[in-house]
Design a protein around this nucleic acid. Sequence first.
DNA 1: GGAGCGCTGTATCTTATGTTACGTATTTTG
DNA 2: CAAAATACGTAACATAAGATACAGCGCTCC
Lengths: 274, 274
Amino acid sequence: MISSIAELISDRIGTMPAGERRAAQTLIANYPLTGLKTVAEFSTAAGVSSPTILRFVARLGFQNYPEFQSALQDELAAQLQSPASRTLDPSSTGGAASPMLEATLDNMRETFRHLTDKQLADIAARLAERRGKTFLIGGRFTDPLARYMAAHLAIIQPDVYHLAGQESIWRDRLIDMGKRDVLVIFDIRRYQESLVRFAEKAHQRGVQIILFTDQWLSPIARFARHVIAGRTAVPSAWDSSAALFVVAETLIGAVTRQLEAAGAKRIRDLESLR
Amino acid sequence: MISSIAELISDRIGTMPAGERRAAQTLIANYPLTGLKTVAEFSTAAGVSSPTILRFVARLGFQNYPEFQSALQDELAAQLQSPASRTLDPSSTGGAASPMLEATLDNMRETFRHLTDKQLADIAARLAERRGKTFLIGGRFTDPLARYMAAHLAIIQPDVYHLAGQESIWRDRLIDMGKRDVLVIFDIRRYQESLVRFAEKAHQRGVQIILFTDQWLSPIARFARHVIAGRTAVPSAWDSSAALFVVAETLIGAVTRQLEAAGAKRIRDLESLR
DNA sequence: GGAGCGCTGTATCTTATGTTACGTATTTTG
DNA sequence: CAAAATACGTAACATAAGATACAGCGCTCC
């Protein structure tokens, strides 16, 4: 049963065209506030035109935009009035422990709250497909995440490549990329120009892009087939990539399970590793 | 100081005429949703006319109605994202969400429960000391964590090196290491022989070792000055490094703060980065 | 009890928002 | 590779929203 608009969206996001999917992702990333703004604001936030927004809400089953906004407001009202379930904290940690830890845990819950099992399953299925090659790359601080994921994926399937080093090096690798291939990109603020350029070129070649970004969405989102928006705010001078890290681990686990279920011969060797 | 519109209202409600007071009460009673609707809806809800609503928001200091609504939305956005009021009701996200996530969150709480603030502060202080060089290295799956930490530390202080590549390469770097230096090692099961050998030799040269490992403790622990034991068990074919990742981020934040407090000139340039 | 002031609502106007139609670009299919 | 179908954006349109002017009413204070 579908009880919230967010669920409704993640349920149908797979059947949406690119533009509407971007609208959906933008809304989910900052749910539900973007939906309470005007069509014009929503459209610029998502980087699409107003009609696309209207088509998006129409596809969700609403007659018009105001009706959609009313639904969001009703939902929000219910949420705000719910028996202030705050302080639910198991207090096993005592709360006071570390503000950094608390913020990180919240980021993870929030990140996964906007991420449905189906989305994860879809992405994992795409990664488990063995049609083409898998490339991974990240930005200044997120490249280690790309490496981490690559280190695992490379064991359970062939043709997994981490793109390292200078921009010129990976730009040349574009030659190897085509429609059947997948590119996993990690990009959080401040978004890197070089990565955006690279993503655009890869997209032009038909490469399917899976983007790990923050809640404000890297500009790469416009080229991406799948977008994972993780929360990054913590009481520190730096942004936190921990939520994205956990999503990555979850995906690694999911891909492994799928390949296992498919009986890939390579997986049996895994046993000897453990 | 007045931080929310609700406070602003209750502050001035005494000076308002009857009609506007009804508007104020209606808004407070269903805060802030009534304020997000149209003027017409607001007015009928309060049982007054539209101009009264507009006079009401004008009295609060807003130039026009949209400006008032934007302020409410900003407030709501902050509220929805702040950890305290997050409703993450156990029914919708709860338990069922992702066993992977739940296990990871547990791991983090457990990891930090066995990690005192003092330990973290001590380690951060050691890393913030600028007496010698800082080297970081990790195992097959944990090396990305070493990279991640190195990427951050290298910005806020000089002489931070990540040891990459073949074993022979970093073995030769031992020549550069001495009593004043720190070596951060990440090593979880299955513990790597090469890392143990390396740690032992570094230890013999007087290098202080900070070890990130799992709860069963890598053999390197016997050489380490500080040991951080993170929980790694998750329902997956792989172990999770997420808890260690969060500890690493916490340390990065702590080191940054300490250097900031010490007024390190290098830190001031950080501003330009953000 | 009467005059002045202030609050409130009705009606009108203006703005900008949501909507629709249509041509172009892109993707999919045979 | 060609043709059809689908998706997207530009621009014009209609509508509903917020803003304003003005008159009526109640209240207070002399």
